[in-house]
Design a protein around this nucleic acid. Sequence first.
DNA 1: TAAACGCGGATAAGTTATGTCCACGATTAG
DNA 2: CTAATCGTGGACATAACTTATCCGCGTTTA
Lengths: 160, 160
Amino acid sequence: MGDMKMSGGVEWAVHCCVVLSQAEGPVPTQRLAEFHGISRTYLAKHLQQLSRAGLVSSTEGRVGGYRLTRPADEITVLDVVLAIEGLEPAFRCTEIRQNGPLPASPTACKRPCGVNRVMQAAEQAWRAALREVTIADLAVTVTKDAGPQTFVRVREWLAT
Amino acid sequence: MGDMKMSGGVEWAVHCCVVLSQAEGPVPTQRLAEFHGISRTYLAKHLQQLSRAGLVSSTEGRVGGYRLTRPADEITVLDVVLAIEGLEPAFRCTEIRQNGPLPASPTACKRPCGVNRVMQAAEQAWRAALREVTIADLAVTVTKDAGPQTFVRVREWLAT
DNA sequence: TAAACGCGGATAAGTTATGTCCACGATTAG
DNA sequence: CTAATCGTGGACATAACTTATCCGCGTTTA
Ligand code: SF4
Ligand code: SF4
């Protein structure tokens, strides 16, 4: 039935961060959207979220654009995912244990139950894995996968 | 913006499995819904999914209902989550690296890229954590949190 | 002064999540 | 035999969310 799906904007945002890590100056939304062949206006929304999260900073005006606020090896994939997806956990308890003919006592409801604890632990494991990889790591992977000339060509295109 | 949210039905399904692990006979949808104070007709949908996933088996007719197909210590929380949420991973790549003025070569696209690999690894860690806990474990937790008489009362109410 | 750019809000279409309803066949109590 | 209970699957309705698009505004620079 319903599947737990991550926002598609995460893919866009991660790719943009990798590109920004290789850029020499501010890159405008226009260029980033064109480069990835995606919607300019919608990407703008995601970049604004990255900006609010403090991952990128923006320059307004004629030759403005976005740049990373920190070195790429200090930005984790988790940072980007949380910036786009929000901070709320995937599992949200609706406290159904308090319903029905045998409701749990207020005392027992002080702390989250076993179900909730398991879900939170799983989410922590998920976050830990995402925290292990930085944007810089991804850039290295791209170089390995697509060749050492890749980012040279990207920089050339950005300078167009 | 968009948050990755788990279906609310997961909470219902897990709770139902815990109750079923303590029942002495088949429990009909009606009772399970009443016990948890939730929608009967909608819960029926989720129970059917558990049935299709092979976690519970149903008995039709006058005194029918659901029961677990396996001992509770052989049903993990992951089993339930996957039965409700589906098998698809949370992160779905749309291959935007193939777009734009510098598309990745077909050679480099043979296998998933670094981004995708990170996401898959994180999801594996998440699943591993959920696989560590069984319905039987949760039942023990409930006994600890809500008192040893809890399930006695549940069985009494179910026999009503 | 005009063009390029980021920012935030309003708006809309498409999709998903949530929930209801009903007709059907199976089973069992009386 | 008959009526009540129960699971199954499909159709249906509605709320919520995702995915955009557009516009007016202020900022910066050629
Ligand atoms: S027992 Fe856990 S999952 Fe269930 S309602 Fe309570 S906190 Fe939520
Ligand atoms: S680089 Fe990875 S995340 Fe990006 S489009 Fe390719 S497979 Fe998807």
